[in-house]
Each structure stands twice: as C-alpha cells, then as structure tokens.
C-alpha cells in the first residue's frame, strides 16, 4: 500500500467482501438446499442454514440417482470427456505447432490457415452440420463423438506456436550440430521447455471440457452417456410439478467440485496460462 488512508482501506475491504458474498452466496445456498429434507421445500422459502440430511441426499444422488442413471456414472462420463478433450487437444496441438514452426514444407501456409481459421468459431454456430457429420461417422453416443468435434479448434495450437517462436534459435542450431533428429529435439528440448504451458493449458481445457453443454446434449441420446452438466437440466425440468430441489442442488454441487478444485489447486499456472500468452 502506498499511503495510509484508513477510511479508503476500509471501503476497499468492504467492496471486496461484497464481491465475495456475490460469488459465494449462490454456491452456499445450493449447498444448504442439498442438506434439506424434501418436505422443506413445500413450506416456502429455503432456510439459510444447513440441515442434517446431507448424507441422505448425496447417498441417494450417487447411488441410485433418480429416474435415469446414477450420478456417479454421469461424473465418470464428464471425467472421460474432460480428460479426453484436454489431453487430446494438447497432444495434437503441440505436434502440429512443432511442425509449423520448425519445418518448411510445401502447403505449409495452406495447412496453417486451414487450422487457424477455426480459432474463434465455437461449435454453437455450426451445430447442425457438425451433428450430421458426426452422425454420418457413427459417432452418436460414443466418447469419440463427445470429444473429437470439440477438439477441432486452434486455440491451443496458436498458444504453442506463439511460445515456440520465443524459443531461441541457438537451441535448434546446437541440436543440429549434435545431429539430433527432429523427434529427439522435440522430446528432449521442446517438451521439457513447454511444461508450464502444458500445465496451464491442461487446467483451462479440462474446465472447458467439463463444462461443455450443447454438444453433449445433442450427441448423446443414450442416458448412459449423459454428462453431469447436461444431466442436471433434466432434473430441473421435470414434467410433473416441482423438481426435487435437494437432489438438484446436490448434483449441482457435485458438478462444481472437480473443476473448482482444479482451478484452486493450479491457480498460479492457470492465471499465468490465461494472461501471458495474450501478447
């Protein structure tokens, strides 16, 4: 702090506490709701303090589920999809960025533009044709179908390319003098240098994958393939009467836990990964 201004400092903390309240309150109340008995919601407004039915709710959600499939199965589906998207995208991006930066070959510029045209076009805007392509390839209700179309974007390739451009040429010259093969150079020099970038991208892509909604919604019709983020909607929009709020909110909490933990644990890498490639 630069100067001592107790009043302004107090004001600053007050504003930040309001910010914390805005962030935490919806999550806290979801947790409180998940610990209630189903009859609580008949009697009007939700209480502000947790009740004693927490184990009951989560046991029911994870064990039998309701109507469709148990929620642990949805969590497993989400996990496969998120890991598949994160690992798959990093793997294909890092090798294609390596090819684009460290080789000169015919059609290189064409390949570059074919890939980079996808940079910001989200799956939402080409949803129906992508669906018919996936259906034509027999990918409905498969993990490949959940993962592959979402990987088709150049963001990660772009970040790796930007990073590779900053690596000094002397490293490559030294490797060439030592007669290292391209793949040896990639494995012994590029991969270790990219460790932080890979970690940061992993966090960002894991969350991106976990939180996918529209694509899983249309590509999976088999209930066994439902992901947790999509599954929760089916619980809110029940056909007859009110949803079972304690189960819905418990599931919402479970859907938030993995990505929130990933962000909090890898906070430093994640922030670096987000803000620094923006050159």
């Amino acid at each position: 702090m630069i100067e001592n201004r107790p009043v302004f400092t107090f004001f600053a903390h007050a504003v930040l506490l309001v910010g914390l309240a805005i962030v935490i309150f919806p999550i806290y109340l979801a947790f409180v709701a998940s610990t209630q008995d189903s009859s609580t919601f008949l009697g009007g407004v939700v209480p502000l303090l947790p009740s004693s039915h927490m184990l009951e709710t989560y046991g029911r959600i994870l064990g039998s589920g309701f109507g469709s499939i148990p929620v642990w199965r949805m969590i497993a589906n989400s996990m496969v999809m998120a890991l598949g998207i994160a690992i798959g995208k990093i793997a294909i991006s890092i090798i294609s960025a390596f090819a684009i930066v460290y080789f000169r070959f015919p059609f290189r510029t064409l390949a570059f533009w074919l890939i980079f045209i996808t940079l910001m076009l989200p799956v939402e805007v080409r949803i129906l044709p992508t669906y018919s392509v996936a259906a034509g390839l027999d990918l409905l209700n498969t993990y490949q179908g959940l993962i592959l179309p979402v990987i088709a974007s150049a963001t990660a390739t772009f970040l790796f390319r930007q990073f590779f451009m900053t690596i000094p040429d002397e490293l490559l010259e030294a490797a060439l003098l030592d007669r290292a093969s391209p793949m040896q150079f990639f494995k012994d020099i590029m991969l270790p240098l990219s460790r932080t970038n890979i970690a940061a991208l992993f966090v960002i892509l894991f969350i991106y994958g976990w939180n996918q909604y529209l694509w899983p919604l249309i590509i999976t019709t088999d209930q066994n393939m439902t992901t947790i983020v999509v599954g929760i909607k089916q619980m809110v929009n029940v056909a007859d009467g009110d949803p079972q709020w304690q189960l819905v909110m418990g599931t919402a909490i479970l859907a938030m836990v993995p990505p929130v933990l990933v962000v909090l644990f890898f906070q430093r890498w994640f922030i670096k990964g987000l803000t620094e490639p923006e050159k």
Binding site: N211, V229, I232, V263
Partner: peptide, 9 residues
Amino acid sequence: APYAVAPAI
C-alpha cells in the same frame, strides 16, 4: 471460483 462453474450450473 465462478470461472470453473459451468454456465448451465
């Protein structure tokens, strides 16, 4: 924290 929360949630 909300960065990690899915839009649907």
